[in-house]
Structure formats: C-alpha cells, structure tokens
Design a protein around this nucleic acid. Structure first.
Length: 567
RNA sequence: CGGGGCGUAGCGCAGCCCGGUUAGCGCACCAGUUUUGGGAACUGGGGGUCGGAAGUUCAAAUCUUCUCGCCCCGACCA
C-alpha cells in the first residue's frame, strides 16, 4: 500500500474523550472513529488489524476441526422465549420490532440460534461431537461503554459452540479449546493467564477466562503466590477466617452510637477493630428481601450471592424501604429484632463471631457482645465475600492471594444441557434413547484482544504491534520524493517486497522525513526500511526497528533476507 | 440508573462569570514559493445552524427553562 493513497488521518493531539492508551492510540493512528457511544467505524488500518486477528482465530480453530458458520444478528424473540432468556436477560438486550409488530433482538450471544440449528440437523450420537463457530458483530446495550474497542456496545466476537453426547466428551473439547486459546493468544504475542470465572448470564457449571495482564484491565484477578490457582474476583473462593476475639461472657447489650452509620464510624466510635463488626446488607433476591451479613472489613460479592441463593436477579434495596423492614434508618440494621421477618444469610467468616457488633435495628444504636449462633437465626452460611489480598489460598492452603488486573479477552464455558433441555434439543444415543445435547461455548473478543495487545505493547510515541497483528509487516520510508535515485529505489524495493509476498506500507508522501518517522512510530509497524540521504552515493539502506533494537545499514540486494530474518 | 463534568470548524481549545463589531487561536485542509534525517517557513485562502428548542432582551455563543448527545466514577461482560 502506498501511504499517499491510504486513508489514515493520524492525529498529533490526544482526543479528549479517550482515557486509556489503546483507545487514544487507535484514534490517533487513524484506525477507528467513533459513531456513537460504544459504536465505532473501523478505518482501513483498524480493519486490517482486526482481519489479522480473525485469521489467527480461524486458523487455530480450523486446525482442530471446528467449522465456521454464520448466524443472523437479528433473532426472533420466540427463540429467546424458549430458553427463558427473553425475560431473564435485562436491558442490555437490544429489543426491536418489525413492521408486523413482532419482537426481535440483536444477538448479544447465539446459544439459542445455534441450538435450534443443531437441533434440526443432528439426530444421532454418530454425528457428535460437532464444534461450530462464527465471527460476527454482537450488540450488548452496555450500561457504560468505554475505552474504545475495549468495551463497545457493538463489537466483533468469535463465538464457538460444541455439542456432545456426554459430559466426558464435552470435557475433552473444553480441554482442547483451552489449548487452542493458548495458541491463539501466544501467536498474538500476549501475556495472559487462564483464570477460574463466574459463568454469569450465559449459565453452565464451569468456566474459565483468559485474562491479558494489564494495569488498565477492568477485571480484578486473584492469584496464589505459591500454587497455580488464579480466579476472577467474582469467582475466587474465599476461605473461612478464624475469629480471634474472646467469647462474650454476657448477653448482648445495646449501646448508643448516634450518627455512626458506616463501619468506619462505628469502629472508631466504639474503639473496636472493624473485623469485630458485622455488616448487615439489605437486598432483593428475585424480589424477596433478604439480609446478608459480612464481616466489617469485607465486601459482599454479588455474583456469589446470586449463585448461592440460586437467584436470577440481585439488587440492593432502596434506602427508603429499609426502615420498613428493620425499623431503623440505613446504617443501623442487624440480624436481631428485625421489624419484619426476613431470611438472613451470612458469609462463612462471620460464622464464629462470638462477641461482635451489629446494628440494633433502632436508629442511633448498635448491639455489642453479640454471639451470632446464640443470639440469632441464620438461614445458611455461604462464601459470600470478595477474597482479599493476603487470604490463604483455597487450593494449596499454604500460599497467599495477590491482586492483579486483567482484560478478559476470552471466556470458555461448560454449559451442560441448560439450553438443549430448555429448547428440547435432543438426539438418539446408542441405546436409542433420547438425550439432550451436552454443550460447551467459547468466546473471544476480537476487537478487545487487539486493544489489549496495544495496552501491553506501546510507548509514548505510539503502538508497537506484535508482528502477528501488525497492519503491515514492513514500512518503506522514502527520504525525499525529489531525489530521483531514492524514488526509483523506493519503487523498486516496494515492488520487490510485494512480489515476495511481504505486505508493506510504502511511505511515498512528499512530507518531511520527521513526519514519516513519527507516523511510522505511531502506527507501530515493526520494521522500516529507510531510503535516505546517503543512498545515492553508498547504496546503503537503513533498517529501523520499532521495538527499540539497534538499526542496521544494508545494501539493497540483501533487504529481503534481512527482513525475513528479522527475528 | 445514581453521582460529577463537557458540548464553539475534521481534531484540540479560548471567548461565557460581567449580553453589544464581521466568533477567535493552534493543528489539519486548499493554492503558491522556498524546504526534506525527526511533527518545515512565508504569503494567500476555504470551512461555523456556537448540540437542539423555547424564552428574556433593542441585542444571546454569553442569561433562564426544557431537551438531546458525549465523557468520567459505581453495579454488567468478550
């Protein structure tokens, strides 16, 4: 490609609405432009990089026998009603109507469509397993799109779905897909780790995420400093902690704590550590009020609560409703003497509390010396809190947890029969018995992976593409368009590289060389061949590397071999 | 959706508080001349419903109300 013909408006200034490096650089390098919140156009350079990523994904999936399909983006509501998700999915499902008033949605994920497709075409265990994938635009009406392609509302995703006769067979494909994902992200030159995950809205029993490690990552990951355990904070198992304070010798008593509504205020007011306090949170689980107790220094993990209670929808109760249930304004709720009877669930770490502090359900008062097992009725104890740094590892019981940040670029699930059962997608097994398909599903955010690659590999001048994702393999920088020898050499080398299958960007613009160097660094092509001042006399070309390696001088005749052996 | 902020040329901004010439600057763009190893210089030029609507006023980018959009902080996800 000649730069003089490429639509690539690079920007000197940082766009005011871009926060993170990948977003800023993709705009500045002329790769993307915003159309609306979370909706972007890809310009030639951006499209090219996305295509490279898609090719890697296709190659690796095809290698293990996955088959590419293409499903519609507009899906009739009826299919989603069959799976139950039309009601369940909530406002990020973009719903629309056609001219007849029939309901549709823009697909945020395609379990329903693929299940319906396979249901109609696979009848026997002999046709199993089958692994189908597509690369397509999804739409999720995110509450808060941000960071460019990192979290768009419309985004490119590879989604694969596998169908099996048995659980064991699903596990084989699941394991194979973890390897495939490893190869894909390795080829992209990314540093990543696979972590245990919450399967959220998609459902199923087991799932893992592929996290690209980056300080700007939106996900908090817990890992163990001694074994290989790693998990998303949403899923990280928090162990029960010992209670280190004496058993209260006396019954609990009421103390005045005026204006002390937060854990910190109560802790300071009473002169007790916050580990001795019990936070009582009022929530709605599928519309039913519940109270959840966690230790004062811990945070409730809503994913865990959702899973533990088997609820579809968890939300905090409106502050105004709290007095009706507890008898006190928010800040003084506790498990003893509630105005209305509600089920009380508690985190494992409050289990042994024998001299704790809880709200008195009376504005301005708390109870001290509370022994939870003696003084109130807990419906059940679960692991409900966020694991924290320093917790003992749930797997090896020796190591300690640490925090890291990650960008979730892939997520794989063992779905089981959730969708096939709901949609009556069945096959005949060896005994002629009807069975629901056992399913797996596997996603990769294409644009997000590209953004993650930039997050991991850039400097103050611009992008430093991993070679596999770079929009061009090589740039040719023409020093001057006025020097005949240079132009002739440039044209010659450009032709020669193209003929040898090298995808190169030929910067033949008649601007000063500084502009070309800056654009080369901004766009992030890994190598440049510079045809400079001394070419006419010496016949020397300069090879420049974007990653900071020392450049070299070469003769025109050896350009190709230097380029090909660049690593 | 709750909290905070911003909408003035393709991009980045000033002007607004305290209403009053033809709305200004830098980058980008067009023409010409001189330039070409690190975002060139000079001269000339094009481009604006000041996000939208209503109101106040002799007069609104500026004041008032409503509205739309966008960004940031929290709960969702590839």
């Amino acid at each position: 490609m000649r730069f003089s013909q490429l639509l690539c408006p690079t920007l000197k200034e940082v766009p005011n609405d871009a926060e993170v490096a990948s977003h800023q650089l993709m705009i500045r390098a002329g790769m993307i432009r915003k159309v609306a919140a979370g909706i972007y156009s890809l310009m030639p350079l951006g499209h090219k990089v996305i295509q490279k990523m898609m090719t890697i994904v296709r190659e690796e999936l095809n290698r293990v026998g996955a088959q590419e399909v293409f499903l519609p983006s507009i899906i009739p509501a009826q299919l989603w009603e069959e799976s139950g998700r039309w009601q369940q999915y909530g406002p990020e499902l973009l719903r629309l109507k056609d001219r007849h008033g029939n309901d549709y949605c823009y697909g945020p994920t395609h379990e329903e469509v693929i299940t319906e497709l396979v249901k109609g075409s696979v009848k026997s265990y002999k046709q199993l397993p089958v692994n189908l994938y597509q690369i397509q635009t999804k739409f999720r009406d995110e509450i808060r799109p941000r960071f460019g392609l990192m979290r768009g509302r419309e985004f490119m995703m590879k989604d694969a779905y596998s169908f099996h006769a048995t659980d064991e067979d699903l596990k084989l494909t699941y394991a194979q897909m973890t390897e495939v994902y490893g190869r894909i992200f390795d080829r992209c030159g990314l540093q990543y780790k696979m972590v245990e995950a919450d399967s959220g809205n998609i459902g199923g029993s087991m799932s893992a995420e592929f996290m690209v490690t980056a300080a700007t990552g939106e996900d908090l990951v817990i890992d163990c400093d001694s074994c290989s355990y790693a998990a998303n904070i949403e899923a990280a198992i928090a162990s029960e902690l010992p209670y280190e304070f004496p058993v209260a010798a006396t019954p609990y008593s009421k103390v005045s704590t005026p204006n002390q509504r937060t854990i910190q205020e109560v802790s300071e007011g009473l002169g007790l550590p916050n580990t001795r306090l019990v936070k009582a949170l009022m929530l709605l689980a599928d519309g039913m009020p519940v109270m959840v107790l966690v230790r004062g220094d811990h945070d409730l993990n809503e994913s865990k609560l959702k899973r533990s209670l088997g609820a579809d929808e968890i939300s905090f109760i409106d502050e105004a409703q709290v007095p009706l249930l507890t008898g006190a304004i928010p800040g003084f709720a506790g498990p003893i003497g509630l105005k209305k009877e509600v089920l009380i669930y508690a985190d494992l770490s409050v289990k042994g509390i024998t001299s704790g502090v809880v709200g008195a359900n009376e504005s301005g008062y708390h109870l001290v010396d509370v022994n939870l097992s003696r003084d109130c009725t807990i419906a059940a104890y679960f692991d409900l809190r966020n694991a924290v740094e320093g917790d003992t590892c749930c797997r090896c019981s020796k190591g300690r947890y640490r925090y890291t940040r990650g960008i979730e670029v892939g997520h794989i699930f063992q779905l089981g029969t959730k969708y096939s059962s709901a949609m009556n997608a069945i096959f005949l097994d060896q005994n002629g018995k009807t069975m629901p398909f056992v399913m797996g599903c596997y996603g990769i955010g294409i644009g997000r992976t590209v953004a993650a690659a930039i997050e991991q590999s850039h400097d103050e001048k611009g992008i430093m593409w991993p070679p596999a994702l770079a929009p061009f393999q090589v740039a040719i920088i023409l020093g001057s368009t006025k020097v005949e020898e240079q132009v002739a050499a440039g044209d010659r080398i450009y032709r020669y590289l193209l003929d040898n299958g090298i995808d190169c960007l030929y910067d033949d613009r008649s601007v000063s060389i500084g502009v070309k160097f800056n654009d080369f660094e901004l766009i992030g092509v890994p190598v440049a061949i510079v045809i400079g001042k001394n070419f006419a006399e010496s016949g020397q070309l300069e090879i420049k590397y974007r990653d900071g390696r020392e450049g070299t001088q070469v003769l025109e005749s050896s350009v190709l071999s230097v380029i090909l052996n660049k690593d």
